[in-house]
Simulated assay, not measured.
Amino acid sequence: MDYCRKQVKSDCEELLSRFQQTESVRFEVFSKIWREMNFSHIFYGAVKREKRAFSRLVLDSAYSFFLPPFSFQIRVGGLYLLYGLYQCQTASPPEQIRLALKDWDDVKKFEKDALDAQHYDTVYIFRKLMSLKAFHFTAMPTLLAYQKKRKVERSALCEEFVERASRPQELINIELLEELSNIHGLYEKLKTSVSSMSEQADSSLNLTHKDLVPQLRSTVVHFYNWQQRKVEAARADR
């Protein structure tokens, strides 16, 4: 069954890539793309004895897009993808979505973020899956079994789906820079008053860079501009 894992992942990435281009998180937008691609047909090729194993593979592949480090929009698309696949699978009773306990905090934070942003269709789909008992809560992400050791092939993340780092911009804001500038000014005045009492300034008092605030701001701006150039280059290559 592993022979078709790459193809399933590729199909999921194609659907989510089209969804990403819409810059939307609406379920109706996702549903339109789902129908255009006839994505429910993904289960039609599985023979009877492979239906459950294939459903497991498909759900596991889609589940990875529901978790960090992917962007919020891709995670929304991953949730919608799980919902569509769970409802359309041909296995009976339906195969559940395996959800490791270590991922539960990320899932609940995702639900809260969607609710705070008033993405009610996203919250509805998640709670609908919960009401259907679609999730199978497990200790580990994958099933553990005693078997011969083998090299596990890890699939590469789609870089276009990964959320861009934004913590530097969030942490180093205007208010923080102003506060740092005030503290730095007070420190310099205190250092000057202490130094004037002695014959010469003690080098141990030079605990900060003179241009700390401008350098910090310049570094964050440089990082942001680099991010923007990288995004624009990626769009140009499409």
Score class of each variant (00 low, 15 high):
Cys158Val: 12
Ala134Ile: 12
Leu16Gly: 04
Tyr86Lys: 02
Arg235Val: 10
Ala62Tyr: 13
Gly84Asn: 08
Asp11Val: 04
Phe43Met: 01
Ile42His: 01
Ala100Arg: 10
Phe223Gly: 00
Thr90Arg: 06
Val47Phe: 08
Gln7Val: 08
Phe223Thr: 03
Ala91Glu: 13
Ala201Asp: 11
Ala53Tyr: 04
Ala145Ser: 11
Phe39Thr: 02
Gln21Gly: 12
Met130Asp: 11
Asn206Glu: 15
Ala156Asp: 12
Glu14His: 10
Glu111Trp: 08
Arg164Thr: 12
Lys32Cys: 02
Tyr224Arg: 01
Gly84Val: 02
Val220Tyr: 04
Val47Trp: 05
Thr138Glu: 12
Glu188Ser: 01
Arg150Ser: 14
Leu144Lys: 09
Val76Cys: 14
Leu177Glu: 01
Tyr224Leu: 01
Ile172Lys: 00
Phe65Arg: 01
Gln118Cys: 11
Ser196Gln: 12
Leu129Cys: 03
Asp11Leu: 07
Ala100Asp: 15
Arg167Gln: 09
Arg26Ile: 05
Pro68Ser: 01
Ile172Met: 06
Tyr80Lys: 03
Gln21Trp: 06
Val194Ser: 01
Glu28Met: 04
Ser92Ala: 05
Ser92Arg: 14
Ser181Pro: 01
Cys88Asp: 14
Glu50Gly: 02
Ser131Gly: 04
Glu111Val: 14
Arg164Tyr: 11
Ser218Met: 10
Tyr187Asn: 01
Lys9Met: 14
Trp104Arg: 14
Leu207Ile: 15
Val162Ala: 02
Val8Cys: 02
Ala46His: 06
Lys109Ile: 13
His136Tyr: 09
Gly185Ala: 01
Val29Cys: 04
Ser131Val: 14
Ala145Ile: 15
Met1Thr: 13
Phe39Asp: 02
Asn38Arg: 08
Lys48Phe: 12
Met197Lys: 11
Tyr80His: 05
Ile183Cys: 00
Ala156Val: 15
Ala233Val: 06
Gly45His: 08
His119Tyr: 15
His41Tyr: 11
Cys88Met: 03
Phe30His: 07
Tyr3Ile: 07
Gln200His: 14
Leu180Arg: 00
Leu186Asp: 10
Arg217Tyr: 06
Gln89Glu: 05
Asp121His: 09
Lys6Gln: 12
Thr142Gly: 00
